[in-house]
């Protein structure tokens, strides 16, 4: 992006207009349940776009969605052998997501990344970064953190406090639009 700075133009005084009735914009909630590459991509595209449109956006991260929010470079997580083995079998981090179909030992995601680059599509990691810059609130699920053995220091910076299902239901009852991805 090139942002060329130009001198500020003097703006005309706005003519008096009738104020339009304020329509209360609904908040947007993504329940990020999946860790499959194509669905993580969808989570990040919708989160960054919603924030770019000025919509208050939250991501509740639960179950297989949570490993995407583990810091790059953190390889093995957990306190007991089962948790550690789970992270070994399913590598955490947003850059290590696999396709739910056509994965072919990593050939599918490799081709996806090639095609994305060719067609100017940003990666999930890049989209997560801009989503956070635009103020998207990421709420990890406390129960999943406990069960998978993720600690706060395993997770990327800028995550909100871990919360539970009641927080999600609370947001829904207050009128948030939600998608389960």
């Amino acid at each position: 992006m090139t942002v060329a700075e130009a001198p500020v133009l003097a703006t005309e005084p706005e003519p008096a207009v009738e104020p339009e009735p304020e329509v209360k914009q609904r908040d947007f909630l993504i329940i990020a349940y999946s860790g499959d590459l194509e669905k993580v991509w969808a989570q990040m595209i919708l989160a960054s776009t919603a924030a770019a449109m000025g919509v208050k956006t939250r991501i509740f991260v639960t179950f297989w969605g949570l490993p995407s929010f583990v810091k790059p470079g953190v390889r093995i997580t957990g306190e007991n052998w089962m948790q550690r083995m789970m992270s070994a079998m399913k590598r955490p981090g947003i850059a290590h997501r696999k396709l739910s179909t056509m994965n072919f030992l990593g050939m599918g995601p490799w081709m996806m990344r090639k095609l994305a680059k060719r067609y100017g599509v940003s990666s999930p990691a890049e989209l997560l970064e801009v989503a956070q810059m635009l103020g998207v609130e990421v709420m990890p699920c406390q129960m999943t953190m406990d069960m998978f053995g993720f600690k706060r220091e395993d997770m990327i910076d800028g995550l909100g406090e871990p919360v539970g299902a009641a927080t999600v239901i609370g947001l829904l009852s207050e009128g948030s639009s939600a998608l389960f991805i």
């Binding site: 992006m1 770019a52 449109m53 940003s122 635009l134």
Partner: peptide, 15 residues
């Protein structure tokens, strides 16, 4: 130019 959905919107919002 050359960027695909949703980056034109995202970059615009940032600017």
């Amino acid at each position: 130019r050359g960027l695909n959905c949703p980056m034109p919107i995202v970059k615009t919002a940032q600017a």
